[in-house]
Each structure stands twice: as structure tokens, then as C-alpha cells.
Amino acid sequence: MERKQSRRPLGRRLSRRALTAVSLLAVTAAAVTGCASGKASSGDGGQSTAPAGDGSNSGTKSNGKNSIYVIGGKSDDPFWSTVKRGVEDATKLVKAGGGKVTYLGPQNYDNLGPDVAKLTQTAISQNPSAILVPDWVPENQDSAIKAAVAKGIQVFIYNSGGIDAAKRVGAVKYIGSDDYEAGKAGGAKFAEAGAKKVLCVNTVPGSANQEARCKGIKDGAESKGANSKQLPLPSSNFGNPSAVTQAIKGALLKDTSIDAVVTIGVGDADSAAAAIKQAGVGDKVKLGTFDLSQSQLDRIKAGNQLFAIDQQPYLQGFYVVSIANQYLSYGVLPPQNPILTGPLLVTEDNVDAAISGTKAGVR
């Protein structure tokens, strides 16, 4: 979404092997300083926990053992499974110090803002050292996030909200992509490829990062002489391929001037590809999406999709947990704010490298 998905292009992402090596080196260093290690376990209800030795945690630390709560998207959301992979790899560092990481996610996205606010309150009730949370719907979430800060809990905003959200709620850092800038890059790419009217399909309307993506698409397209409009769909359609396909197909048949479609996530992009085919406009309508999956990469390689915008979700999960842990343990903190993980535009020119990263489970 992801958040939070994407900002300025970064260099090539570290391979899974390289990142694992970094993790293991850090774990080894922690062990040498006398930190105890724990064993990870998984719970039910969308939670995964790496438990630590003892007791509750109040304030920012408890006997040097950090308790970190990560709030994210649905566990069966492909994007968030990649974020969680980064969280799980970084959890090794937390466990080495005797700490724990707990992941909380909503059951669905139908009532996203209030549901995530409740998850934040749940995390606060456990007196953790830190809460790491996307700021998807500020009007619903900000009061809960500010309550965590007021209680002395260190808060990191990641994936969605950006530096403005981090400053507004008093968080330590923002880690993730800049959704508006990512959208601008995509809108400009469409226009450069000859598109004149771009349809931005939003299946989570009202979500700050998705609205920013569609606004970026519009501004990027207009900067190159094209234009864009948004197709907001009920959030209940998210994860319902048939409903999304039919909605996009209907929009294409109703407005034949649309010559490009962009979606806020990979599942919707598959639905858009089906809609374009069913509407019989594959020779005219270009497709793009935010985030990556194997089907997007296959279409790009085959010349059936123009681009995918990668906000590098693995890095979001890995960075936010490891940076929070280092800050809690040692007061170590990178000076950059925000810490950006994207955007990186994947096109036919660099799709082979992206395919390799997807096979490794980190893209």
C-alpha cells in the first residue's frame, strides 16, 4: 500500500543473499557483546511474534530488551508478505538482544483507518519500546499515534504518510517511498510513451498514500501534455478481481478516449489487464501499476505492460525494524529524514534484474 507503497530512484537493491549476510554479521556482533538470543514463533490472528525473555516493557526500553510492534497490511496481501519478509529478517537482530517483534494487521481494508487506529491502541496497551506504523488515514489514525508518542513510546512512520506525517505526529523518522513522486514518474512515463488520457484506478479511496499516487499520476501526466482522472472504487472491491475487472472494463467502454490505465497495486493490475483484454482495447490502452509481482514483470518483459513502480517493500520492513532497534539499543540513528526506499521504475530496460529479485523473495 502500502504503504506503504516511492521516491527517487535508488541503485540496484541488495540481493537477498547480501542482505542476509548483513543481518548475520549484525547478529554475530550483537552476540559478541553478550546479547542473548531467542527463538521466533508465530501466533494467530495476523500476528507474528519473536518473543523475548522476560516481562513487559515500559517507556522506550526494558532491561535492554526491546519490544517492537509493527503494524502493517493483511498477511495475505502479496505486497505485505514482502514487507513482512524484511521484518522477519530484521527481527533476527532484535532477538539477538533478547527482544521481540510483533506484527499486527487488519483482517480486511473495508474500514482501514479506524481499524488501524484500534491496532495502534492495542499495541500501546502492551507498553512496547516502539511502534512502527503506516499513516494511511490521518484523520482516523493520528490521535492514536500521538497517544503513543505522549506515552513515551518511540514511533516510526513507514510505507505511507511521508515526512509530513512523521513531523505531524512527533515520530522519529519516516521510512518508505514518496507516493506522490512515484505517481509523477509514472504519469510522465505514460505521456512520454504517447498516452493522452490516463485512468488511475483506486480501490482504497481516502487512503493518504493511494490518493497521493493518483494525484502524482495526474500531475506527472499533465507536465508532459497529457491528462488523468481517477476511478475510485469501493474498498470492498479490493481483493475482488472480478469486481475490479468489470469496473475497469465498464470505464474503458464508456470513455473510449482512455488510452492508459494505472492501478494502485499488483492485484488490481491483473484485473486491469483482464479488463483491457475483455474490452478489446489491448492495441490502444497502455498499462502500468504500483508495486511488483511476477505477473507484472512477465507482462513488461513480453511488451504487454509499460511499467511497474517499485517502492522496494522488503527494504521498508527491514529498515524500519533494524533502525528502530539500533536507536532503542544504542541511540544510533541515520541523519536522513525521510529515509527513502524508492521509487524505482521497472520497464523493459531493467526488467530482467527485477525478475531475479522477485525469485529471491525480496521484490
Results as ranks from 00 to 15, higher is better:
residue 306 L to V: 03
residue 236 S to K: 08
residue 350 N to Q: 10
residue 59 G to A: 10
residue 252 L to Q: 06
residue 169 V to P: 01
residue 356 S to N: 15
residue 336 Q to E: 08
residue 240 N to E: 04
residue 280 G to C: 02
residue 63 N to V: 07
residue 163 I to Y: 07
residue 184 K to W: 11
residue 12 R to S: 12
residue 302 A to Y: 07
residue 113 G to R: 00
residue 193 A to Y: 04
residue 148 A to R: 00
residue 270 D to R: 09
residue 238 F to D: 12
residue 127 N to D: 06
residue 180 Y to C: 06
residue 109 Y to I: 01
residue 2 E to G: 08
residue 118 K to G: 11
residue 307 F to D: 05
residue 146 K to R: 03
residue 120 T to I: 05
residue 312 Q to S: 11
residue 160 S to I: 15
residue 229 K to Y: 06
residue 324 A to D: 08
residue 352 D to E: 13
residue 141 Q to I: 03
residue 225 G to Q: 02
residue 114 P to F: 01
residue 354 A to N: 03
residue 119 L to W: 05
residue 68 I to Q: 03
residue 360 A to W: 07
residue 179 D to A: 14
residue 297 L to Y: 02
residue 229 K to L: 15
residue 7 R to N: 13
residue 12 R to G: 09
residue 205 P to C: 03
residue 346 V to P: 10
residue 284 K to S: 00
residue 10 L to S: 05
residue 351 V to A: 11
residue 287 L to T: 09
residue 262 V to I: 07
residue 287 L to H: 00
residue 121 Q to D: 07
residue 75 S to K: 15
residue 230 Q to P: 07
residue 259 D to G: 07
residue 76 D to K: 08
residue 25 L to G: 09
residue 285 V to Q: 00
residue 335 P to N: 12
residue 160 S to V: 11
residue 346 V to I: 09
residue 212 A to W: 01
residue 296 Q to W: 11
residue 119 L to V: 06
residue 217 I to W: 13
residue 251 A to W: 06
residue 142 D to V: 04
residue 67 S to H: 05
residue 312 Q to H: 05
residue 169 V to N: 05
residue 308 A to W: 09
residue 229 K to Q: 13
residue 349 D to H: 12
residue 108 N to K: 08
residue 263 T to V: 14
residue 87 V to L: 12
residue 226 A to P: 04
residue 99 G to E: 08
residue 239 G to A: 11
residue 279 A to Y: 02
residue 174 Y to N: 12
residue 305 Q to N: 02
residue 207 S to L: 13
residue 343 P to M: 05
residue 232 P to S: 09
residue 315 L to S: 06
residue 88 E to S: 14
residue 158 Y to L: 04
residue 325 N to R: 06
residue 240 N to T: 03
residue 251 A to Q: 12
residue 180 Y to Q: 04
residue 203 T to W: 09
residue 285 V to A: 00
residue 209 N to A: 03
residue 268 D to F: 08
residue 357 G to T: 13
residue 308 A to M: 13
residue 315 L to F: 15
residue 150 A to T: 02
residue 192 E to L: 13
residue 214 C to A: 10
residue 50 A to F: 12
residue 133 V to W: 00
residue 6 S to D: 14
residue 50 A to T: 15
residue 224 K to S: 06
residue 173 K to C: 00
residue 37 S to F: 08
residue 320 V to N: 05
residue 101 V to I: 10
residue 263 T to A: 09
residue 105 G to F: 06
residue 91 T to C: 11
residue 43 G to M: 14
residue 112 L to K: 02
residue 108 N to S: 12
residue 143 S to A: 13
residue 162 G to Q: 00
residue 165 A to S: 06
residue 145 I to P: 01
residue 322 S to T: 09
residue 46 G to Q: 14
residue 274 A to R: 10
residue 262 V to K: 02
residue 313 P to D: 02
residue 171 A to Q: 01
residue 140 N to C: 04
residue 249 K to P: 09
residue 345 L to R: 04
residue 252 L to R: 03
residue 3 R to F: 14
residue 187 G to L: 10
residue 181 E to W: 09
residue 295 S to Q: 10
residue 229 K to N: 04
residue 156 F to R: 05
residue 110 D to Y: 01
residue 353 A to M: 10
residue 310 D to C: 13
residue 5 Q to F: 14
residue 69 Y to D: 07
residue 96 A to F: 04
residue 56 S to K: 06
residue 283 D to H: 02
residue 51 P to M: 03
residue 21 A to F: 03
residue 32 V to I: 14
residue 172 V to F: 00
residue 180 Y to D: 04
residue 279 A to N: 00
residue 73 G to R: 04
residue 19 L to W: 06
residue 342 G to Y: 00
residue 100 K to P: 10
residue 298 D to L: 15
